[in-house]
Design a protein around this nucleic acid. Sequence first.
RNA 1: GGGACGUUAGCUCAGCUGGUUCAGAGCGCUUGCUUGACAGGCAAGAGGUCACUGGUUCGAUCCCAGUACGCCCCA
Length: 877
Amino acid sequence: MEIPTKYEPGRAEKLWYEYWMKHGFFRSEPDDREPYTIVIPPPNVTGVLHMGHMLNNTIQDVLVRRARMLGKNACWVPGTDHASIATEAKVVAKLKSEGISKHDLTREEFLGHAWDWTRKHGGIILEQLKKLGASCDWDRTLFTMDAERYDSVVKVFVDLYNKGLIYRGVRMVNWDPQAKTAVSDEEVYFTEEQSKLYYVRYKIVGWNDYVTVATTRPETILGDTAVCANPNDPRYQHLKGKKIHVPMTNREVPFIFDEYVDMEFGTGCLKITPAHDINDYEIGLKHKLESIDIFNDDGTINERAGMFAGVDRFTAKELAEKELKKTGNLLKVVPYNNKIGRSERTHAIIEPRLSTQWFLTMEKISKPALDAVMNGDIHLHPSKFRNLYRHWMENVRDWCISRQLWWGHRIPAWYYNNGEIVVAENAEQALELARMKSGNARLKESDLRQDEDVLDTWFSSWLWPITSFDGINKPGNPDLKYYYPTNDLITAPEILFFWVARMIIAGYEYMGDKPFRNVYLTGLVRDQQRRKMSKSLGNSPEPLDLIEKYGADGVRVGMLLCSPAGNDLLYDDSLPEQGRNFANKIWNAFRLVNGWKTDTKIPQPESSAAAVRWMDEALKKGTAEIDSHFRRFRISEALMVVYKLFWDEFSGWYLEAIKPEFEKPADKTTYDATLGFFDRLLRLIHPFMPFISEDIWQLLAERKDGESIMISRMPESRKYNKELIARFETVKELISSVRSVRKERDIPNREKLTLIVRADEKSADSEFIPVVVKLCNLESVSFIKTKLEGAASFMVGTTEYYIPLGEKLDKKAELLKIREDIDYYRGFLASVLKKLENERFVQNAPANVLELERKKKSDTESKIKSLQEREKELKKI
RNA sequence: GGGACGUUAGCUCAGCUGGUUCAGAGCGCUUGCUUGACAGGCAAGAGGUCACUGGUUCGAUCCCAGUACGCCCCA
């Protein structure tokens, strides 16, 4: 059968993924093996796969596949997130394109559309993950808004409320006056816009004097409740304790001091409007100032302003300007560039506005989560994130958990009478509670009104490791007991606080235990200019196209090769290309071995026997290194070991060393050993490249239906012979040197050479001499004890080698080379001597270091000596 | 403004907490190769005052301080 010279990934990917699914290899049920659990960071339900997902899920799959092959009961739980903001925005946009406005729909109607959308687009992303080779237990697929998860979220809210940890409070939100809704920070974009800076004078009460304030928003003067300067500003010290009269009103407000004020900006004096500026709000809280909200929902001025009631905010600005000018309070107006926040959806200018929101008290419940990371109960990889985590957790703020949206878990709070609140799992319980609390048994369900808002998306995902096993609804169920705490969490550092920290908090609050043992933080995928990959920039390749082009294995390797933990990955097409080339290399190594015929009558050549002995040790060494890298989550380095083990050691050295002559059969012993090595290598490769490893593994021997590399055992780490490996490294150096001699003198490969070693036959690395003979195409190797004249020479370690060249010897070139070597070694010797002649070094350095330096000295001296001898000999000729 | 991290070869990064595992890897680059598995390959090479300035030490890429630049998170 003719095997193509290039590996074709498409066929293998389809064939083997179906095979794995058919045999249920991804499924996991509790048993008596050790569990290994990962819960997926749930992608947005209506999202599509991007490069970040590719990286993240490749890493998870590598870990899961490896754990499985280490004999653990591996369970990777997949699922999607309802992503309230993102999904709702998409549904709103889709309805808009059909001419439907969200405000024309009832909540139920809108949710109907949202569910339709979710059912239509939901889970596409999970199908895409399958193309990547993800070995999730698909029978466990979850959704943050499915029935069990929804109930869990509601139960947790009620529980936290009853524990007194949830409260209602005022907070500044980004208000979109056109859509009449609050929008999240993520939905606000900033543009640099030309505006004006107004210098307005405020009268100092009791004095015939003024203080000047610079502001971009004269209309909000109507809501001012203080004027503020920096406490270190000498210009305003005399105003301590004074009252200031706010123009256009009859209010007198305090003059206060706060470090927040920038002395360089404007006049160094700031008007404080707590209801309409986020920074003013903070200052207002600190100084216990009154907040006067002067705007209506639609951005018009309300009665509380005392002036301009009913006027739009932009008109109000013009009117205020006129009014101030008329009273002589407007001193000057200068052009000014500032950053204006606009709503992503309506492009209206955002109005900061106070509103009542639900909050979760964080301080108490976050304590165990801080401790867990600090005392090493949970490991962050790389560990540099510990400091960041600590800083955040020590300064944790209360969590605003309500969102003015419909798509999500509706807040289980009901209002009745005039602002009385009950919190319960459902309407019936709420009614019962309300009757009890009010003492009014006649309250009807229609007297209760449920809160319109939903919960922050993270308020469901913070429970993910628990709800993945339905741990809130069914505490202590068998799955939960077996799989919780999970092992590793793989996610991006940007959501360390939003998500990871909160999962840890929830874990201790609801399970009394950590949700996972290790957190591996991946980097961001960026393009060559270090820009984030994003849809809007259009700089992100389409992942499925990449898989099509380079193969899933190739793309996986590409993603992993260049992404050490916590470092960004600068994506370039050369990465999956390298991965594809590696797959091809494996494929061709298989073609070679597969093409050999064996003959049991042929004895094993010495060179092959030696190569087999070495390859076995090299594999043991590689396996140990891979284990060690995985223990420390150095996944790209583990892959690099596999890569070099296969490409350099196995293909480059071993296969070349044992390769039978053209169209001649191989001996059985070597052949079997080679298949054994190939098998071990494929198993090491499998977690990284599941498809090609399975494809070749299935061809390597007769396999029965139901056999698979993915359920075979990973080669185990064993002690290896360091000394033998070191000897072979010297042999490699020797072989390279002979090749150099050929290259420098243009001696073709097929021309046989003679190698002479200045050493005792027994003391040399005679074990591998047959390998050298074969790889260098040597006529013979002999040993002498004296110098040899008229030959090319070189040194490996402290041993001298000669290759007689007869006429071809270029005396001048040889001499030059020797001269260079002598100069180099003399320089080296000088640096060693400098140390050894330093008395304090000799006195203070540890014995072994001293010993090493002395050995360096004697080795180098002997090298120089033999080079000099040789130089003398050459000159004689 | 507060905080965290970083600066090592043309690029992306290792260097596991001071001494032949010390200056490394992969990619890229240069020069040869129709070498009967693979040009998606093979062979041989070139490339770095380890950001800068001080300090500690017998000895610093590694520890300390400062400077410069970069990046991220929070506000």
